[in-house]
Design a protein around this nucleic acid. Structure first.
Lengths: 203, 203
DNA sequence: GTCTATAGGGGGATAGAC
DNA sequence: GTCTATCCCCCTATAGAC
């Protein structure tokens, strides 16, 4: 907080440069396969400096991981808590928002999923996410839609699981599915663009 | 093939014991985080013996990876090529088959997805999968169902993506979704058990 | 085939000069 | 704050005895 850099011209502080490099390399290769030397090189600084700022690889990783998780989830929480929007709109916003997000950060989903297992998800406890969702507008609207028979999944988590799976899986499964089917990158993109209406038939 | 062990009493050969241990550790921790010492210990043999049989960590890993991929896909190919079963049945078989498979091998999906990216999916070329699917009964039935307006996804890969996402994501996303929602393991299991009809409304 | 012992290298972290 | 040089542990792979 105290050291936030607000200058418009991106005169990045060294600390920021290192974090940005770490984000890039960690998200691409995962914790175990990443060498601190790679991060230093990517940041254009020396290996010693990395430890000067962040003390250890683990510490740096935890920071990146928490920021990544938070960035991924705050979007979700924001949409879910909007009293004004309908459930249908929420679903569309979540879908389009995350599709945009993943296109900008293609490595994030698999990174999070992989590293959470390795870390047994303990880091999630450090994030104030649960409360944000626990009595959201989304939950009430979902319950109502279930009562009216508009939604097949009776449990909100079940509903959320299916929705996220439909959004995320095409991206993380891409190499495998391409391998099976033999379609080109261009073809794949067209197919995925067609995933506009992720959850049709809500209203 | 030549060295298949068919004895009912599981008198495993040493090579098999090492491979089984490697499978377990690699699938759980991934290539980079796995130490050959862990595999040796898990197999109850010495580290040197591992190299005697498999020459290097990379070689051993590639074998495990290929076998895992093949095991995962041959099930799919078999179901998709059955002329007798309907599309509806195929979907049900794929879903139930993979759910069973994942319950028995909970680490496999994330293992494959993670390690394929690291390896840029090059290993898939070594598997004779594409041909198996390329003119399968599934493809014809899917085309027909699209023409009859029974399926929303016009491209078979799109259809397959959604289906696999619905099956696989609950498992790999479990730690994250539990973190968000705070439900217990028992609750989660109940929710997931409810995913019987993955693709309703086909016929 | 299986072991013990060790070579050899890589990578995280630090000392210390500037 | 930033660098160079270096320490030291850990891990893979191999040599060599049995």
């Amino acid at each position: 907080m105290a050291s936030r850099n607000n200058s418009k011209i991106a005169e990045q502080t060294t600390e920021e440069r290192i974090k940005e490099a770490a984000r890039k390399v960690f998200q691409k290769k995962g914790f175990a396969a990443t060498r601190t030397r790679d991060i230093a090189e990517e940041a254009g600084i020396n290996l010693a400096l990395l430890n000067y700022y962040f003390r250890s690889k683990e510490k740096l990783f935890e920071i990146i991981m928490l920021e990544t998780l938070f960035g991924f989830m705050q979007n979700l929480a924001f949409i879910m808590n909007d009293d004004k929007s309908t459930l249908q709109t929420k679903v569309e916003l979540i879908a389009s928002g995350y599709i945009d997000f993943i296109i900008r950060n293609p490595n994030v989903p698999l990174f999070m999923l992989s590293e959470m297992r390795a870390n047994s998800g303990g880091l999630l406890k450090k994030l104030p996410i649960k409360q944000l969702v626990s009595n959201s507008a989304f939950l009430k609207q979902h319950r109502k839609a279930v009562e009216e028979g508009k939604i097949a999944e009776p449990h909100p988590l079940h509903f959320l699981m299916n929705l996220l799976g439909l959004i995320v899986f095409p991206f993380i499964g891409k190499p495998m599915l391409q391998g099976i089917s033999g379609v080109s990158d261009n073809q794949f993109k067209k197919i995925d663009d067609a995933k506009e209406e992720v959850y049709p038939g809500l209203d």
